[in-house]
Nucleic acid binder design. Structure first.
Lengths: 217, 217, 217, 217
DNA sequence: TAATAATCGAGACGGTACGTCACGTCTTGGA
DNA sequence: TCCAAGACGTGACGTACCGTCTCGATTATTA
């Protein structure tokens, strides 16, 4: 389980006395937040609005979440299908990456785009949320690239010392850039181009270590 | 000259009647904004604080800028040395890109990082600012990559149908990703790895057009 | 109790839920308003100044009052001694009216004058306040004249069909006129003259009904 | 001519050099003020709105008037027919007063009411305007009552020592009271009642001087 | 069964900043 | 000297949310 809410929430030693947390309120809060998000956009998403729509007191929200962004992140994680978390393994780096990149690009170019942009923006002003965002949504995506590239390395499909961290940056960086800067569309052409380019890079990059190895020959 | 302020400001046909704009107020506003930014951070940067520090009325600020972000952007553009706007031309793609990437990475990992993050965040919530940001700061940087890659193409250093737009994404996307997500440092190692990888990609990528050309042989 | 504040405040059926209104804030607001009024005058009385002096948020003031004038009116009503609300009953119309008029004239020529002028001015620009002012402070004063004249009528001291409403106008109209227009002093001479004249009028006025009665003889 | 505008305007020794005052601007300003007054009410009457509507600079308005109220007062005085300034002389006090009171009451209950209320309110916050208002509009009205009552005194229609100042207060005070407080209508019934009552008062009042005279017998 | 304790809704509270309005003053070029 | 245009500093407006704080009521565990 992810660690999005206030610290005390997840305290293992929390005494189980007193009235238990209302699952109904929790559901209504998340539901209301997502409805506001889709109806009026992230700019209209604030604690007062969520509380009013959910028929819940502001205190209850603040008790379990630090900000509206945390609620959205929790909803997003809950909404993410389980299979999305498993890295594809089709046999080739290129098709693996396409399996990863195409759905991501498609989702971000449609419904998920505005939310994702808003959460990243939020993270720039809120270190706690940045941490939560990075270690949940983002790390899951990055991990899949690392796994795919790692397997390609074992197959000898890419140079042996390719940096998997950098590979993840090369995949998600451009996507994020187009999403946030909006200078060009997030479409299929882009997805194919991005994967082709990255695969070529992974196969032929001359890293410092490689150059050192060749020099030693 | 950049086009950051309200539309009417830059109207070419604007008649020269009425009291002229106070250059002193303009200077004080920009100066105060940058001081607050460096002292207390972007979160503390608001119109009231700028007006108070600059000894200026809020109305005067609103007359010429739409938000504090526009002031910062204007200051950044004014601060940007002229030579930064000229793409390097050292003879090889790799050294050209290094000339571009290393100073950028260095600046973003130090003083410029927080400001840049804040402006990108701001752009996600303000379409007008996003437009201004994209067409000034961002397009200038992207243009340099396009120029450098274009020259490499003419030299035959990279495949003839490489997409310069995508090249710019491959360079700045990962930088932006690390800056915004903070999962890994923006250091020299990253700069070299990014350039090496991108150069390899540009040289060996098999694009659709290239594959078609080869198939025709 | 008077009905000066927002409508919902005095709702009888208001449920006793939520944090109760802070009596301390209420007291501080009224106190601060009166202090500003006496120190700097009505022109300096604004919501921001009251809030600052009372150590209270503007929102709290707006929650319970519509404007600074309402606060002053509430303070005035609270400050009004109970016995002032009871019409004098000395046995003759003249001495009753003197009991009413002299303290009023004295108060208005001194401390109360500026406040009263300001509230009447306020009422001309704010229909809600005009209503509150008329039905609280003003109607109380008018009612006393009506009561005094009514008793004089029963005693046969004045003509039987004298209009008590008009009588109240004849008493307070000239006082108000001198207060607002400032063409002549509000002094004892004026008070005696006003009462003498009004008593004479009440005793000898030939109203339409009276003329009709005489004509029937 | 009245003395409403800034002091320098009426300076006798004013040098006649430079561009002369624009009669067209003056007309447009007064016209615009009255239009705004009738269209949107006194609350909407401000210097910026007048200047904009009149196609005039704010400076020009401030050069000749101290506030919007002065403009309105000037317009009102210019609009007042000459014959209104001559006290009626019909032979009896009652019909003289009716000639005075009925048109006044009628005008105030219709078009003139809101403007008059607003000007009186304005006078409470602006001593200079209060002075101008009192010595122009108000004194003219009061003077007519004084003249009418003075003639009645000479005819022996009223007691010889009746106070003409007080008489004027007794007439205009109640009118003003009803206008400002709005507790009862300004109608014909009120006008007749007011005049009847005042006439009775003037005929039968026992003033201090009269009582002293009687006591000497 | 009662005491204890945490949660809930409602909503008032102090606080910060917003973006706007109108004020009265000023600085241009032109009449 | 006046005029229009319009920028300027000043001050207050009324609103939006923030995150916190009482309330009384509710719902569990613990004694």
């Amino acid at each position: 389980m992810t660690d999005l809410a206030n610290a005390e929430t997840n305290s293992v030693t929390r005494p189980r006395v007193g009235r238990p947390r209302s699952v109904e309120s929790r559901r209504a809060i998340i539901q209301s937040a997502m409805t506001i998000l889709q109806t009026d956009g992230y700019a209209a998403l604030n604690i007062e609005a969520i509380a009013a729509k959910a028929g819940v007191s502001k205190q209850t929200i603040y008790r379990w979440w630090n900000s509206a962004a945390f609620i959205v992140l929790e909803a997003l994680l809950a909404d993410m299908p389980a299979q999305e978390s498993i890295a594809p393994d089709t046999g080739t780096l290129k098709s693996d990456l396409l399996e990863l990149v195409r759905p991501t690009v498609r989702a971000l170019s449609q419904r998920r785009g505005p939310v994702f942009k808003a959460l990243i923006a939020e993270a720039q002003a809120d270190a706690r949320f940045a941490e939560a965002f990075r270690t949940s949504l983002m790390s899951a995506h990055r991990e899949m690239v690392r796994a795919v590239v790692g397997r390609a390395k074992l197959r000898g499909e890419v140079v042996f010392d390719v940096d998997e961290e950098l590979a993840a940056d090369m995949i998600f960086g451009p996507i994020l850039f187009r999403l946030l800067n909006g200078h060009a569309p997030l479409d299929e052409t882009f997805a194919f181009g991005l994967v082709d380019t990255t695969v070529a890079a992974m196969r032929f990059v001359e890293t410092g270590m490689r150059r050192a190895a060749e020099a030693a020959e």
